[in-house]
Nucleic acid binder design. Structure first.
Length: 946
RNA sequence: GCGCUUGUGGCGAAAUUGGUAGACGCGCCAGACUUAGGAUCUGGUGGUUUCGGCCGUGUAGGUUCGAGUCCUAUCAGGCGCACCA
């Protein structure tokens, strides 16, 4: 009987769909397990073989867990909002909703062919109103919340209003954009608008005037993680810094919790480290410097408070508002020219060209410890967005300050004994402090750090600063608030209208606020975002619905927000929605949430480390605070699947001809290597006829063959259309079947490693499946499975396999379990094993990896129910025991001969046998036996000495 | 510059965690069956060898009876962060 994978796979896929085999419901009688893949953005190019890698790995685990009695949630959906569909819409006029739906259909078709155990009933699409209803809802809750630093928790903004009314800002410790200070009376005196503005300073979702990454080409702002090397991640367009009023999320309030949470989750060290880096916690001191002849106080942040005696100048960021106040008339022209020049430089230019630039303001700060005057400069090496936007410069012990001091001829005062600062600064935080203060300089209260170790000097300075009211100990984070608006069409609309210029939320019960139709996807002529083109885009507060813009009277009808939300909005809480995808009363019902808790296993690429995986953790912590999610970490275990790279093929054209030379002969000619579509190549041999048909210019191509074949060259490159190395999973499924594809993707190597797709090895996996199939049938096609008792040998093969596969799946080492299958099937074939007692468990073991063939074999063995509900077999140690064991006998670590002994021989007997073996005499002759080391069942090592 | 990570045959990779390095697959070689093979099956396949062995896990040391595995130094690749004070 032939292994007809096409027929088998098609039939079972239909059956599973018809019988809802993978439909899952909350079942408190069974333990739950939640497996999740990062949902894909449905691009127009469809899936290539790299995409399903993670899906297959998680599907194997999901099926395995189900076989072990778990109630497994394994959902799939689409991250459907995104720039490519919109860019395509701008070019072609095709509505993004149309292209997105088409791409989703294509993805679904491709996914269905691979035989996943997804519960499609729980599918979500971020662009569905029923889905983004809850994205908008979460945003509204963030707007209505502030972060209480003392409780380390989000609280209703109402509580803050009450606190302001009773005591002003005194006693309030809340995360904010700007430290404010007012009394209850001042709060009471504020009008509605003023209060709204004040509250905005505290809201978790807030409208903020900030420096943003503006991408003129895309016509939108971008989050920090969407900017790579000063250009946009999508498209690679230049990005400039621009001050704009934008929606932001106060992610920074959660910095410490995001950091602490990493301790409790099972992620790779490298990923946790990446997040720690991104959060960038830095413990230091904030110190105040008075300015000579001015009321201005300069606050700076430093991690090296101990270097206070080496401060020889101060530097302000060009964007700092203090620049204007501190610039003296004599320096005004120069400073303004500098600010102008800095503004013109893009982020990219600043990174590419690290010239030392700066300008003196004419003002002098006063060192709070010594009273010395210190010149205040402006330079773009100080960033406005970090710390206070001002620094104390210690050129002797900071390389950037050093470069600046050398360039402008400012003094360098070394503070560490033995540090040579004639050529470069001494940045290390070690050594003994000196010159603190210098001889002859009197410090405040006789303070001195001389003779202390740097570590102790930092602590001593912190203590002194706090005690003398010169500043405070402060923790800074690199993590910035997330900019949450995009000037694009294809995204979630904000449920926001504007009254007196202040944003108002649309009532929760009126959600979702649906994305309006527009005629054009480009910004309006007046520079408004694309939603400015929508006619039906105003909010009627009386009728509580969207209405025509023309009716705006700012009395009952108000303009709606024109920005839309960024890509990460929809992907931040989708794992919660899968728990309860059809609920129209809540994002997730408490029952469903309590049952599924959190994602037990999350699989996806590490490229989301500083984007989605931060935002999602933030979003979840917020939902945890307001009691919607019961888990404060959303993804308990995370595995990063490696990228599948492309394996490109090349043909070699002899220059100025249409003749192509086979790879082995190309060195004899002057050739140009050209990418050739890998689908025209099999095992590196070119299908010459297909090649001729590929492109008109190759129709009359000539070939120089080797051994009658045209052999192509190859290289590992990114899988992309332009390299002609994209391998489509459908092609593989068509040729070998889904089970072979699944097996082969896993066999390729460890899932967390990047590796090139190489179709060359796939035959091996396909052969394995055929051999497995052949175990179950006789040559004439009749079923071979019998009720005979299995041989001990066969049981040993089976139980060895059960143990190996079970342990490997638990360790996500799928490539080695596939190898174990190959060995076991080979052994069983050799043993001519036909016993049901062996072949049935074998089919179950195979089910997670190759579900179609397993299901088919299971049914052919007479089972009416699906193999998915079978019970995972357990191994029995008694079959794994050996009767005899072959020991290696080594002398001084070198193996010389082997010895067969009963497996249960005690240590003494092994030792005796080794010493009395006749070969032993040969090696011990003339030596003294120092000791004998017995590694039971493995090695006897005899240590010799002359 | 800082952090993380990986170096093993012609290739993808294994190695029970300190115990016979290279499982399994590809490729290659030989054979069988075939008019034929890009089909199938069987056997072989790290290097070297005077056929006793000897040498082999990026490089150089160290610990150990014994090191791919542990320690020290060093080189190379990949990823992340990067005027973050």
């Amino acid at each position: 009987m032939e292994y007809n994978f096409k027929e088998i796979e098609k039939r079972w896929q239909q059956t599973w769909a018809a019988e809802q085999t993978y439909h899952v419901t909350e079942d408190p009688s069974r333990p739950k397990f939640y497996v999740l893949n990062m949902f894909p953005y449905p691009s127009g190019a469809g899936l290539h073989v790299g995409h399903p890698l993670g899906y297959i790995a998680s599907d194997i685990y999901a099926r395995y867990k189900r076989l072990r009695g778990f109630n497994v949630l394994n959902p799939m959906g689409y991250d459907a909002y995104g720039l490519p569909a919109e860019q395509y819409a701008i070019q072609t006029g095709q509505h993004p909703a149309v292209t997105t739906a088409r791409n989703i259909d294509r993805y679904r078709e491709q996914l269905d062919k691979i035989g996943f155990s997804f519960d499609w009933d729980r599918e979500v699409r971020t662009c569905d109103p029923s889905y983004y209803h809850w994205t908008q809802w979460a945003f509204e809750r963030m707007f209505a919340s502030y972060y209480d630093n003392r409780l380390a928790q989000a609280r209703p903004i109402r509580e803050l209003e009450e606190a302001f009314a009773t005591g002003g800002t005194a006693g309030v410790d809340a995360a904010c954009s700007e430290e404010l200070s007012f009394t209850a009376a001042e709060w009471e005196a504020m009008d509605w608008k003023r209060r709204q503005e004040t509250l905005m300073n505290y809201r978790i979702a807030y409208l903020g005037e900030t420096m943003v990454n503006w991408c003129p080409k895309l016509g939108t702002v971008l989050a920090n993680d969407e900017v790579v090397d000063g250009v946009s991640e999508r498209g690679g367009y230049p990005v400039v810094q621009k001050r704009m009023r934008q929606w932001c999320l106060r992610v920074s309030a959660y910095a410490q919790r995001l950091l602490d949470g990493l301790e409790r989750i099972d992620w790779t060290d490298s990923l946790k480290e990446t997040q720690r880096n991104w959060i960038g916690r830095s413990e230091g001191t904030e110190m105040e410097f008075r300015v000579k002849d001015s009321d201005v106080r300069l606050t700076i942040f430093t991690t090296r408070a101990d270097t206070i005696f080496g401060v020889t100048f101060m530097v302000l960021a060009p964007e700092s508002e203090l620049v204007g106040q501190l610039t003296q008339p004599a320096q005004r022209a120069e400073v303004e020219a500098y600010l102008e020049a800095t503004k013109k430089r893009t982020e990219r230019e600043r990174i590419a060209d690290r010239r030392v630039t700066g300008v003196f303001t004419g003002s002098y700060a006063i060192n709070p410890f010594t009273g010395e005057s210190i010149p205040v400069w402006v330079s773009d090496y100080v960033l406005a967005g970090y710390g206070t936007g001002a620094i104390m410069a210690v050129p002797a012990h900071d390389s950037r300050d050093y470069a600046f001091a050398r360039h402008f001829g400012l003094p360098v005062v070394p503070l560490i004994e033995g540090a040579d600062v004639t050529q470069e600064s001494f940045d290390a935080k070690e050594g003994t402090v000196m010159n603190s203060p210098r001889a002859g300089v009197e410090a405040l209260d006789g303070f001195s750090l001389n003779g202390l170790e740097v570590k102790d000097a930092i602590a001593a300075t912190k203590r002194f600063v706090t005690e003398h009211g010169l500043g405070r100990v402060k923790v800074n984070y690199r993590l910035r608030d997330a900019i949450f608006s995009r000037q694009r069409y294809w995204g979630e609309p904000f449920p926001v209208y504007y009254k007196e210029g202040m944003p108002q939320m649309i009532p929760e019960e009126c959600l979702p606020l649906e994305l309006p139709e527009v005629t054009k996807f480009l910004p309006t002529e007046s520079g408004e975002p694309p939603l400015g083109n929508a006619q039906q885009w105003a909010w009627d507060t009386a009728a509580r619905r969207v209405t025509d813009k023309a009716r705006i009277d700012n009395v009952t009808v108000f303009p709606l927000e024109l920005n839309t939300m960024p890509g990460f909005a929809g992907s931040s809480a989708y794992y919660l929605r899968y728990m309860d995808p059809h609920d129209d009363k809540a994002l997730v019902s408490p029952e469903a949430d309590r049952y599924w808790q959190a994602v037990d296993l999350y699989i996806g690429g590490s490229e989301h480390a500083t984007g989605h995986l931060i935002y999602s953790r933030f979003w979840d912590k917020f939902l945890f605070d307001i009691g919607v999610s019961c888990a404060d970490e959303p993804f308990l275990k995370l595995i990063n699947q490696g990228m599948i790279q492309g394996r490109s093929n090349f043909v070699y054209r002899i220059k100025d001809t249409n003749t192509f030379v086979s790879a082995g002969l190309k060195d004899g000619y002057d050739v140009t290597p050209l990418h050739v579509d890998v689908n025209l190549v099999q095992n590196d041999v070119l299908d010459v006829e297909a090649f001729k048909a590929w492109r008109p210019e190759y129709a009359d191509a000539q070939f120089v063959l080797e051994d009658g074949k045209y052999v192509c060259g190859w290289a590992v490159e990114k899988m992309s259309k332009s390299m002609y190395n994209v391998v489509n999973p459908d092609t593989i499924v068509e040729r070998y079947g889904a089970d072979t594809l699944r097996l082969y993707e896993m066999f390729l190597g460890p899932i967390n490693q990047s590796k090139p797709w190489d179709s060359n090895g796939i035959d091996g996996c396909h052969r394995f499946l055929r051999r497995a199939w052949n175990l179950y049938f006789r040559k004439d096609g009749a079923p071979a499975v019998t009720d005979e008792a299995p041989s001990r040998e066969s049981l040993k093969s089976l139980h060895k396999l059960i143990r190996k596969v079970t342990e490997d799946i638990e360790a996500f080492s799928y490539n080695t379990s596939v190898a174990a299958f190959m060995i076991a099937v080979g052994e069983l074939a050799q043993q001519k094993c036909t016993s049901r007692a062996v072949l049935e468990p074998l089919a179950i073991l195979l089910a997670p990896f190759a579900p179609h063939i397993a299901e088919e074999l299971w049914h052919r063995m007479g089972h009416a129910t699906t193999v998915c509900d079978a019970e995972w077999p357990a191994w029995d140690e008694q079959y794994l025991k050996e009767d005899t064991v072959t020991l290696s006998v080594s002398f001084n670590g070198k193996t010389r001969f082997t010895l067969d002994l009963p497996a249960d021989a005690p240590r003494e007997e092994i030792e005796r046998a080794a010493l009395s073996a006749e070969q032993t005499r040969k090696y011990t002759d003339g030596f003294q036996i120092v000791k004998v080391i017995v590694v039971p069942r493995k090695i006897v090592n005899i240590v010799l000495k002359k």
